[in-house]
């Protein structure tokens, strides 16, 4: 814990973005692991020493790699990760749209009457009541 509330708030915000390497699905903010504690202390020391948020994050990423970021960076290796789900959604939406439109068109335009049918209708319509 830092005495300066502004610094402590920054430390808390950053530590929510960093993965605990031991438990892997927790951030170092919520993990009870020893290493998470050490990293929280380290983070506060970096901030006290005058690091910006980005510098403090980079310090830890340099040692543990992008894996330590709960939000992976957008770069060629992660394009599929970031843009894959929206791409699948768009493909699905376009497919669904085409399907629905085609189905409606089929319903809206029944097959034209054949000459025979026309004749029958003419006959029926001319019949006196």
């Amino acid at each position: 814990m830092l005495k300066a509330p502004a610094l402590e708030a920054r430390a808390r915000a950053i530590s929510k973005e960093l993965r605990c390497l031991v438990c892997q699905n927790e951030s170092i903010d919520e993990s009870n692991a020893d290493l998470a504690h050490d990293l929280r202390v380290l983070l506060r020391q970096r901030l006290m020493a005058g690091d910006t948020d980005q510098q403090a994050i980079d310090f830890i990423v340099k040692r543990y790699g992008d894996f330590v970021l709960l939000k992976p960076p957008v770069e060629p290796a992660t394009y599929f990760l970031w843009f894959g789900p929206p791409a699948v959604l768009i493909v699905g939406a376009v497919g669904a749209l085409l399907f629905v439109r085609r189905r409606n068109r089929v319903r809206a335009e029944p097959a034209p009457l054949s000459a025979q049918e026309r004749q029958r209708i003419d006959v029926l319509l001319r019949e006196p009541n």
Binding site: L21, V22, D34, L35, D38, L39, L42, R63, Y64, G65
Partner: peptide
């Protein structure tokens, strides 16, 4: 003892 060198190496266990 502090584990700081371990962190510099990227040790996580």
């Amino acid at each position: 003892e502090s584990g700081r060198t371990g962190i510099d190496f990227g040790v996580y266990g």
